[in-house]
Amino acid sequence: MTATHADYRLSQLDELEAESIHIFREVAAEFEKPVLMFSGGKDSIVMMRLAEKAFYPAKIPFPVLQVDTGYDFPEVLATRDNWVNRLGVRLIVAGVEQAIKDGIVVDDGKTSRNRLQIGTLLNAIEDNGFTAAFGGGRRDEEKARAKERVYSHRDEFGQWDPKNQRPELWSLYNGRLHEGEHMRIFPISNWTELDIWDYIGREGIEIPSIYFSHTRRVFERDGMLLTESEHNPCRDGEVAAERTVRFRTVGDLTLTGCVESTASTIPEIIDEVAVARVTERGATRGDDRFSEAAMEDRKKEGYF
């Protein structure tokens, strides 16, 4: 941000940043026990940056929660640790593996890790008594998200009721809760994928290396390029080969596809995103492809 503005106008990034910082401070002031859901992906990194700025020079006044699918990219976990260490915030890891062992969720061999995260997450929120959980959801991502409030109410089962949402006017957020309920908070609701990249570029902040072009052994499944790994071996007829790729989103590595790309800098990624003709989720997320309402259904149950 420049020091003076002759015409008293903010750029779109400055305005989005100001709106998000306002939301972070509002939640810190009004909720007893907030937590930031941090995946290590670019959206949650932008959230971390905004939280850092909102409370500077004080530390971020709430912990960070990561739901570990057990199938996370090691590069993403490394970036997570760097962020957490630099900011000195407390990290809580809720593992899907542990949740399976504890009988909180059931791994029937058919349900994806992504879906098993729901029970793991809700359990972590309940166990720790969190009343507000920041999520990196953006309204441009998906059409069920397009109608979700910044303060999104969850009942005592963690469920979202899309037909019965509270009206949200001006920048007056209503954080009232009953015992056992919690609020999901989406401080970057109004950011688009391009805004996120512009901001990462402008702020010069660390993101996982897998967002940049690299060589990787991948194979094709359902039109997506997936990483070959011990959790995700090739099936009959699938052949792994080394390709030059990058990821547009990060998640469970058995479900998150990459795209062939030579973009190795933020400006190159921005150029690529600006001309992309397929949404980031449609292109590379197996979890959103099952039905037109896949996201809405998962969100109702308590997904991020």
């Binding site: 059409k143 397009a146 109608k147 899309p162 949402q165 609701s189």
Partner: peptide, 29 residues
């Protein structure tokens, strides 16, 4: 159908709720 994001809206063919949409030109978001 692009803007009617919720299952109930698509079923009933009406917009019930506020939907936020985003676009940008070189001058403005």
């Amino acid at each position: 159908l692009l803007t009617d994001g919720l299952r109930s809206e698509r079923e009933q063919g009406i917009t019930i709720d506020v939907a936020y949409r985003y676009f940008a030109t070189p001058n403005r978001k």
